[in-house]
Design a protein around this nucleic acid. Structure first.
Lengths: 366, 366
DNA sequence: TTGTAGGCGTTATCAA
DNA sequence: TTGATAACGCCTACAA
């Protein structure tokens, strides 16, 4: 009969919000009628007059639906989770933004969580999201050997991989994925360097646990072979971070013993790096070693993440379709949520080369 | 009697997970005993032998707690929400990371949502999070004139503001906040420019809806007055984005009619910009106009966001304490969740000047 | 220490 | 079209 206390003491477990029962009492109808009137999907089952009155009362009492109570019955939350390995990497926010934009049009809200590249944390987050009844999951974090997909299967949560895919024939349940054509992308970098005249080209790879890293490495080797070249060297960074990039490049600059002209020179005139984040560290290492990017050693990145057009020298890199990637993933997820039996699909987006100032013809041998 | 179907068809609303009742039946005890045995907080109320057996059965059946059902009773979720205005701005991820790290130690999981600087979306997200029973909220997005705080109060959700604070005496409920000393920070930039010999200094301000923008503007004016200088010009960018920065700087480069030596010169030799994101646009505009950063016009930023040490010329800026900001906010939130009556606190962190290459003495008049 | 019963707020299935 | 009733899965007085 009373509206809920107007300003409940914070933290006191009193009835904070009006419930359907409150509205029913006040409007003089049964709770189930209120439920029907207030739920857009069932509003048609109720006389317009009743619907109006109920709505009016609900507004007056400040009623809000309890997603928890509704979820307990319906197992739905109109919420989608996104797992990201590392929000600090600027390529993810634009992708997230695209995902959110699409999902918002369908009334879904998006919750992002950071796995920090930690498989245990990833599992915890998936469990937690499952328990909060997310209707679907977008995984930008899943690495091979992770429980992510089996957890999704166990909880019956539709999931779409993004940016990374599971190893072919890994025996795990089929999932849809939206990825880059990483093999093609790194090939563009190699072609560009070769066209500039480089022959001794190194690859600075990322941690091989994820498909992007493996594909870029494979693609590098393939394309070098295509040009009849031996890879000068392949180093693997410990993580996709600036610091790991610096460390890996520092090692590479030492050069394999006896390869360089003076025996202690880097064995390459160009490096195709596995991603832009690593490139920042590569620049750091080169600066520390007194080498000039482009003039001494050409560098290519991957991702065209925001801001790399303004670093110095501006980075030549492979642009991926951030926006399309997010949009496609969201669309596939929506489709699979609507129709769970739908065939899984794997979309591979085509990247393009963006030439800037970090690449140049090799310096003449002294 | 049966464990739940081992591999339930996805999307079919069958009993996906074992419930406490299933475990009880299988273990030959009552459901409430199972509840007590499985809840760490009440496990002591049960014989160790029973606890063991119950746990074992629960594991075997793959039981998972349903946060939804539990939340419906307890109104708790051990989940914290974070609202961010724009994930694409690289200053937020490091702050989020610090928040997550602290909260994770207490067993809380963190869910991030993007408001996109949209008040309506912000309200929707808060409602949605409330309805998902987040135990607390960290708001990096709240602008003046927003419903955020009243929504939190209505739902009884403890909240802490971060990076921004509410206007003093705005009549809104008191909230704790962790911010920068923006007034001091921009003062450091002015001092630095004045020390270099600049007298005609402009300010490129951010949208005045948020406290950071207002404080930096105020601080700029104060400090100029302190030095006995008139501000050369104050332009306000339409948003905290690179593009808005470019547009604002382009306008500023036109110069107020007749101010420059030739009547169409910019009326300043230096610009103190309200944040680093805008600076990227400032660089763009200067490049387009054929002006050199530092050599022609000095530029200072604010935030020391990741990567600005590698743009060209490296940005002189004001470093804020990302990490401390996140940590402090998380700690305050934890304290206020534990003890709702706690006095609100406002922490202001002290920023520092980082001198790089985007500032230099003013060019001699031709 | 364990069992009993009732309820958290909503929706779904009946019957009227 | 509306009302009655029973879940959804868990927690918690209270009683035994």
């Amino acid at each position: 009969m009373q509206p809920p206390a107007p300003s409940p003491l914070r933290g006191v477990p009193s009835p904070l919000r009006a419930t359907i029962a409150d509205v029913a009492r006040e409007a003089g109808v049964h709770a189930s009628t209120v439920s029907r009137a207030l739920n857009p999907a069932t509003r048609g089952m109720v006389t317009e007059a009743v619907a109006q009155r109920v709505t009016e009362v609900a507004d007056r009492l400040g009623w809000r639906p309890s997603a928890v109570a509704a979820g307990l019955r319906t197992r739905k939350s109109r919420t989608i989770g996104i797992l990201v390995p590392d929000l600090i990497n600027p390529i993810f926010p634009p992708i997230l933004h695209a995902v959110e934009t699409v999902l918002a049009t369908q009334g879904y809200v998006t919750l992002v969580a950071n796995t920090d590249n930690d498989a245990a944390r990833e599992s915890l987050l998936i469990e937690r999201m499952a328990t909060h009844l997310v209707d679907g999951l977008i995984l930008a974090s899943a690495a091979a050997g992770t429980d992510a997909l089996s957890l999704c299967a166990r909880f019956g949560i539709p999931a779409v991989l993004i940016n990374r895919r599971m190893p072919e024939g890994a025996g795990c349940a089929a999932v849809s994925a939206v990825t880059n054509d990483d093999i093609h992308g790194i090939g563009l970098a190699v072609d560009h360097l070769v066209a500039l005249g480089h022959r001794r080209i190194a690859h600075l790879a990322g941690p091989q646990g994820v498909s992007t890293a493996r594909d870029r490495r494979t693609g590098f080797l393939d394309r070098m072979r295509h040009h009849g070249l031996e890879p000068a060297e392949i180093t693997t960074a410990a993580a996709y971070t600036r610091e790991a990039g610096r460390a890996a490049m520092a090692a590479l600059l030492q050069g394999p013993a006896g390869t360089g002209p003076s025996g202690n020179e880097p064995g390459c005139t160009a490096v195709a790096v596995a991603n832009d984040m690593l490139c920042l560290g590569v620049y750091d290492a080169m600066e520390a070693a007194g080498r000039r990017v482009a003039a001494d050693i050409s560098v290519t990145g991957f991702n065209d993440m925001p801001f790399v057009d303004r670093i110095h020298p501006a980075l030549t890199t492979i642009r991926i379709q951030h926006d399309a990637m997010g949009r496609q993933a969201a669309c596939i997820l929506l489709a699979e949520m609507a129709e769970p039996g739908l065939a899984r699909q794997s979309i591979r987006l085509v990247p393009e080369l963006v030439v800037r100032a970090s690449t140049a013809p090799p310096a003449k041998a002294p």
